[in-house]
């Protein structure tokens, strides 16, 4: 399986998805997109379609759980929610993220 260039964002995207699901509970894919955009604004704009490979991979990893339900427009939709494993993963990712940003900030502040 060849790596896609988007994969360098993978860690970030995973973190955002896990965080969204941790704070908002069960959501479908579009809901997650809207949630991230409503908070981050246009700064974090990625192609919406690239969300789905990430969701499916994380479901296979056992971090999130997928379940069919009915959406607000009364259509069948797949809803995702976080698992205990996902919560642990989120904690680890958050830690890694803050370490990374702290390190980057330190470099930037170094004059």
């Amino acid at each position: 399986m060849g790596k896609h260039p988007n994969d360098r964002l993978q860690g970030t995207l995973d973190l955002l998805i896990l965080k969204s699901l941790a704070s908002r509970g069960s959501m479908h894919g579009y809901g997650i997109t809207v949630h991230i955009q409503s908070i981050a604004g246009d700064a974090l704009r990625v192609e919406e379609g690239s969300l789905y490979p990430a969701l499916h991979r994380m479901a296979q990893e056992g971090w999130i759980r997928a379940k069919w339900g009915s959406s607000e427009n009364n259509r069948r939709a797949r809803f995702y929610s976080i698992t205990p494993g996902g919560l642990k993963q989120l904690a680890a990712e958050e830690k890694r993220w803050s370490e990374l940003t702290a390190a980057v900030t330190r470099v930037l502040q170094f004059t």
Binding site: E48, G49, S50, L55, Q60
Partner: peptide, 24 residues
């Protein structure tokens, strides 16, 4: 246009389903 390449993402997603189960 916001979604990106539909077929490409669909195939990638499918790949995820299969590859991860192979890996497990």
């Amino acid at each position: 246009s916001r979604f990106g390449n539909f077929t490409f993402e669909r195939e990638r997603t499918r790949e995820m389903d299969i590859a991860t189960s192979l890996e497990t």
